[in-house]
Design a protein around this nucleic acid. Sequence first.
DNA 1: ACCATGACGTTTC
DNA 2: CGAAACGCCATGG
Length: 111
Amino acid sequence: MMKDESFFDKVYDVVRQIPYGKVTSYGAIAKFLGAARSSRMVGWAMNNSHTENLSVPAHRVVNRNGLLTGKFHFDTPTLMQELLENEGHTLTDDQIKDFDNVFWDPAKEIF
DNA sequence: ACCATGACGTTTC
DNA sequence: CGAAACGCCATGG
């Protein structure tokens, strides 16, 4: 707050465009924003997103391994997994199965 | 300007 | 294969 949330705003915008049944990684978003090494900022933006009253499908954003690293940041540690399973994903030990197949690259889909 | 934080990523041991 | 260290960079104090 008290700022335009420049970086965060971009992150939210990208995450909101993630189609149903698709997922992406923090690094991919960061790269799309022009800051490939700011992957941590993306995750941080997610953390801030749940603090704000924003509608950001953070459950569709996982780390580069397809692992639900941030599941503990949701209301419940199982919420993220259930949301993904609800979208047709298969979770294996907090990791998305066929991650490459459901991976959504903003740099490719968004022009 | 400096230090601390962080839902990552890569490399190294 | 698993854990730890380092790097990287934006935001807050």
